[in-house]
Design a protein around this nucleic acid. Structure first.
Length: 837
RNA sequence: GCCGAAGUGGCGGAACAGGCAGACGCGCACGACUCAAAAUCGUGUUCCGUAAGGAGUGUGGGUUCGAUUCCCACCUUCGGCACCA
């Protein structure tokens, strides 16, 4: 036994961290005898310093991983770094420090900070995405996707600063006028040939969440992001101008343009077409007298961001091209306009406009005086008149002005479930004008980046043989260190004098490497696989490790990744599954998201606002255990909350009071049986709640339950309970419950102060004694006409008649009844009695 | 504008089958210990009211013996965004 001493977190924490490390206490190894639990938390970008937000994400995740370990699972809880990306390259441009040097320095600092957390990370399994041992396999995965036919090249516009001569990320384009963050020059669009993955091939499968326990919120976000809609694809022929050459067409054969619509039942009401200003046919269809106007409109549309173009309350704009199309269902000649509310990136970039039954088309038609023809008559409305109607109707009704379909019922349903739509689709197919079609908002994944600090795209281009993947035995294609990363308008790798020169894998002739690098989301799509065996050099992972640990059982991280990262990693897993590399349909079975810690001013934390909370400072002042406890306590984990630097005092007090209670000299007293019974009951009730809350990720109530039990124990100790068997049990269970939350002080009290066998972190989670947790008697509220008038205490097993009698005899009830007999008495077992007068 | 989440004391939050609103903590007030302060400990703390009592979970309705919880309408805040054809 150690003599009582003051609580000194700095000493305790560094001592135990060193010992756990030396003993390999947190090494996770395959053990077929135990059930496994792969707990994964989103890996940080090595920005330089650990942020309180990292702690908020990671420490509750660590606590839960520790809890699972005590429950008997063989737990894997790894950590690594998502180390490629823009900030390191920007810093290099500004300061001249090589991205690799900066990244390695930052990682070194963050590793230290992460260790101060006292988490159960198995550091032998650390991965760093910017090291060749890792990105060798990122490249290898690219090649597998390429070989599976999932990678292709396509022209695609990027934001470009003509002054800095560089491609800009969305975050580098500032302001309403869309200028370059660095120099203020207005940004332009530049078309580049880039690599894509066919994520859309998996769109339908990604819409199924079968077998995974993910928050509804995330599933809804992903579903909306994929945006599946059912309808029809219809070809509109372009009406040739009297003396112009024939029109080339766009996917619709000779002289036709393809359009997707969810409302083929309204085709007879299509009185004009609208093309996106970027549509490839615009120049061809534009009549000479409209050319100047069309070109001017195209220019101003290109200057806007998608978000501006998509703003709902914006006044509709557009110009007439002078061209006409033929409505295929009735042969009408209809004008073609261009407008920025039609986006090239959605559907086919051209729409048929039905102003009578679409709000945007209606606003557009009214503004520009275009024809409105109603074709769906709602049942309970007076006959619609295209000239006088003042709002588009979008609901159900019967088809009118629609040739063979007049009288057909149209419901509110979408797609084939709607009889009107279904009938028209069949008719279109029969006539060869259109077909049933499904459209997605989801787009293929653009992975090319005109950057240095990323994984090279392992492709070689030969004049004769086109693109070939780099042969496996030449992987990885490593980044050269001697590059010019100052912006030049080209990928830095392209400017390197020799790096891009290689030979064609097919013919051996001189050839060039791809000089773009990969999107960092590519690196983070498979990092959970690298953790399994970062030492493995025969493949991305060791199959034995995969077979034991995968899939990820619990994935924790921020909600902001709901649509990008979490969809990419699901796509990745499914694509690899189809190549036989992974198994199962989903990589992560359970997902839980934490909310955001805001600054004390209730704003998002940022350096520029000066409201950033540094965990290092807090650890220095209070110790890691207190910071961990406070982060679990101060807000609902899935909600987050503004930081409160006074509130942490409460957690600090709790930790100190535990220390005092367990290190004070034990003075044996003469406790009453009731004191001991009450203590035991509280202990097991608390255990029950804490167990449930760990299971459901409700961390804040774990801490408050532990605080409550501490208060009870302080009272019991004053009543002489210390030294009793009940007290010994209470202390034992208390420390086990505390261990996942505050691992250092729990270990110190367990091993050093109480002299129990090292380590507390290898102990089993205690079992609830239901009999001990049960209440002997209950205090019930008695309501008269819904108002609490008194309380009665009855044995827990009292029958309803006994309870009723006690309630009616209670003083406050008698007074409220004023001598009148109750109309009804309701006894709610264990809760209350409700009397109706 | 649409989608999602949320509105409970001075503050963070609790209430987990519709059943005692405000657990736990912060802050505050008073007290003990101190020459004093800090730390620690104790008591109190939703609002109105001296009290009895009354009101009260964003607002207005509804269902119910009983609603923070369920239903309808609305308001506000936060997050995301697609004028999605």
């Amino acid at each position: 036994m150690t003599t009582p001493k003051a609580y000194n977190p700095a000493d305790i924490e560094s001592k135990w961290q060193a010992k756990w490390d030396a003993d390999g206490l947190y090494h996770s190894n395959i053990d077929p005898k135990r059930p496994k639990h792969y707990a994964l938390t989103m890996l940080p970008y090595p920005s330089g310093d650990l942020h309180i937000g990292h702690w908020y994400a990671m420490t509750p995740s660590d606590s839960r991983a520790r809890y699972m370990r005590m429950k008997g699972y063989n737990v894997l809880f790894p950590m690594g770094f998502d180390a490629f990306g823009l900030p390191a390259e920007n810093a290099a441009i500004k300061s001249g420090i090589h991205p690799m040097v900066r990244t390695r320095d930052n990682i070194e600092r963050m590793r230290k900070q992460l260790r101060s957390m006292g988490a159960m990370f198995d550091w032998r399994r650390e991965m760093v995405s910017s090291e060749p041992e890792y990105y060798r396999w990122t490249e290898w995965f690219f090649i597998q996707l390429y070989k599976a036919g999932l990678a292709y090249r396509k022209m695609s516009p990027v934001d470009f600063c003509p002054n800095c001569n560089t491609t800009l990320a969305r975050e580098q384009v500032w302001g309403d006028d869309r200028h370059c963050e660095r120099c203020g020059t207005p940004v332009i669009k530049k078309d580049l040939n880039q690599w894509f993955f066919k994520t859309t091939r998996y769109a339908d499968e990604l819409l199924s969440y079968e077998g995974i326990d993910w928050p509804e919120r995330v599933k809804t976000l992903q579903t909306n992001w994929i945006g599946r809609s059912e309808g029809a694809s219809v070809i509109f022929k372009i009406a040739p101008a009297p003396d112009s050459p024939p029109i080339s067409g766009n996917g619709g054969g000779e002289g036709g343009v393809e359009v997707f619509t969810t409302r083929p039942d309204t085709l007879w009401g299509a009185t004009f077409m609208v093309f996106s200003p970027e549509h490839p046919l615009v120049d061809e269809i534009t009549a000479p007298e409209h050319k100047a106007e069309v070109d001017a409109y195209k220019q101003q549309a290109a200057r806007q961001s998608d978000i501006e173009r998509e703003a709902v309350d914006k006044e509709k704009t557009g110009v007439f091209t002078g061209g006409y199309a033929i409505n295929p269902v009735n042969g009408e000649r209809i004008p073609i306009w261009i407008a920025d509310y039609v986006l090239m990136s959605y559907g086919t970039g051209a729409i048929m406009a039905v102003p009578a039954h679409d709000e945007r088309d209606f606003a557009f038609a009214r503004k520009f005086g275009l024809k409105v023809i109603p074709v769906i008559q709602p049942e309970d409305m007076p006959a619609l008149d295209g000239d006088t109607m003042d709002v588009a109707t979008t609901g159900a009704g019967r088809m009118i002005n629609s040739g063979p379909f007049n009288g057909t019922a149209v419901t509110e349903d979408k797609g084939r479930k709607n009889p009107g739509i279904s009938a028209v689709i069949d008719w279109l197919a029969e006539k060869g004008i259109g077909r049933e079609a499904v459209n997605y908002r989801y787009r293929d994944w653009l992975i090319s980046r005109q950057r240095y600090w990323g994984a090279p795209i392992p492709m070689i281009h030969c004049e004769t043989h086109g693109w070939s993947p780099v042969p496996d035995d030449q992987l990885p294609v490593t980044l050269p260190e001697d590059v010019e990363w100052k912006p030049t308008g080209e990928s830095p790798l392209k400017l390197h004098p020799t790096w891009k020169n290689t030979t064609c894998p097919v013919c051996g002739a001189p050839a060039e490497r791809e000089t773009d690098t990969m999107d960092t989301f590519m690196c983070s799509s498979w990092y959970h696989l690298r953790y399994l065996s970062p030492w493995h050099d025969q493949g991305p992972f060791d199959e034995n490790e995969y077979n034991y640990w995968m899939p990820v059982d619990t994935y924790t991280g921020g909600i902001e990744h709901a649509t990008m990262h979490l969809l990419y990693t699901r796509f990745f897993h499914k694509a690899l599954r189809d190549m036989g590399i992974t198994e199962g349909h989903e990589p992560m079975l359970q997902l839980r998201n934490q909310g955001m810690v805001l600054g004390e001013d209730n704003e998002k934390m940022s350096k520029s606002r000066g409201n950033v909370i540094a965990p290092d400072v807090l650890v220095g002042r209070y110790g890691a255990d207190t910071v961990r406890a406070y982060l679990m306590f101060f807000a609902r984990w899935d909600m987050g909350a503004p930081w409160d630097s006074q509130g942490i005092e409460g957690s600090a007090r709790w930790v100190r009071r535990v220390w005092t209670l367990f290190t004070d000299e034990v003075r044996q007293g003469a406790p009453t049986p009731e004191t001991l019974r009450n203590l035991r009951r509280k202990v097991h009730q608390t255990l029950k709640r804490v167990t449930r809350d760990f299971d459901t990720f409700e961390f804040n109530t774990i801490i408050s339950s532990l605080m409550e039990l501490l208060n009870e124990m302080v009272r019991a100790r004053e009543a002489g309970a210390a030294g009793s068997a009940e007290w010994t049990e209470a202390v034992d269970i208390y420390l086990r419950m505390m261990a996942p939350v505050t691992p250092h002080i729990a270990e110190e009290l367990w091993t050093n102060v109480l002299g129990k066998p090292y380590s507390i972190h290898t102990q089993a989670w205690p079992r609830v004694d239901e009999a001990a947790a049960r209440e002997d008697e209950l205090t019930l509220a008695v309501q008269v006409n819904g108002k609490v008038r008194d309380r009665v205490t009855v044995p827990a097993d009292a029958d309803d008649e006994t309870v009723k009698a006690a309630a009616l005899a209670a003083e406050g009830v008698v007074r409220a009844l004023e001598g009148q007999p109750p109309k009804k008495v309701i006894v709610v077992k264990g809760k209350l009695v409700s009397i109706v007068m």
